[in-house]
């Protein structure tokens, strides 16, 4: 009999609590990054995909970091979410594609994630766009 079909086998949910703890070293690394930010004004970005996480490690990290004051959504090439954690200066940056799937996820330790700032090139385009818009308004409004 295929064991998978045997109802008597109870598959326990993979435990994590005390046995694991790959989130702990990451929390330590984040603490170190905060120090760096404060003392040397150096920002740190951690790629979640590069971490050897087991099941629910990421969830545990997320719970540990909590929810902060800022939550922003960016709409370009799909949605991106930037949320501050309960610890100021520690941010989640999550990129999704146009279909809504997560394609990259980072923890940024910085005063403000770069992606939130308006970009110089975009501002140049914006100036031109606004100029053009104004022209149009003038033309139309006159």
């Amino acid at each position: 009999m295929n064991p998978a079909m045997d109802d008597s086998i109870e598959i326990e949910p993979t435990p994590c609590a005390k046995d694991r703890g790959n989130d702990l070293p990451v929390l330590n690394e984040i603490l170190h990054a905060l120090n760096e930010l404060l003392t040397h004004d150096r920002q740190t970005v951690i790629d979640i995909k590069s971490l050897p996480f087991g099941p629910v490690d990421e969830e545990r990290l997320s719970i540990a970091l909590g929810q902060g004051e800022v939550a922003a959504t960016i709409h370009t090439l799909g949605e991106s979410r930037v949320t501050e954690t309960a610890y100021a200066g520690i941010w989640w940056v999550e990129h999704r594609n146009e279909q809504g799937a997560v394609i990259a996820k980072f923890i940024e330790v910085t005063y403000m994630p770069d992606i939130l700032k308006a970009q110089h090139e975009d501002v140049i385009v914006a100036r031109q766009k606004l100029k053009d818009a104004l022209e149009t308004i003038k033309l139309n409004g006159a």
Binding site: D47, K49, I74, T76, D114
Partner: peptide, 23 residues
């Protein structure tokens, strides 16, 4: 019509895909 911000996002995800450091 993708913004520079979009390009940055593209670069960040590309870095992640290449398993290169975000730096």
């Amino acid at each position: 019509g993708i913004s520079r911000r979009g390009f940055l996002k593209f670069c960040a995800t590309t870095a992640s895909m290449m398993a290169l450091s975000p730096s």
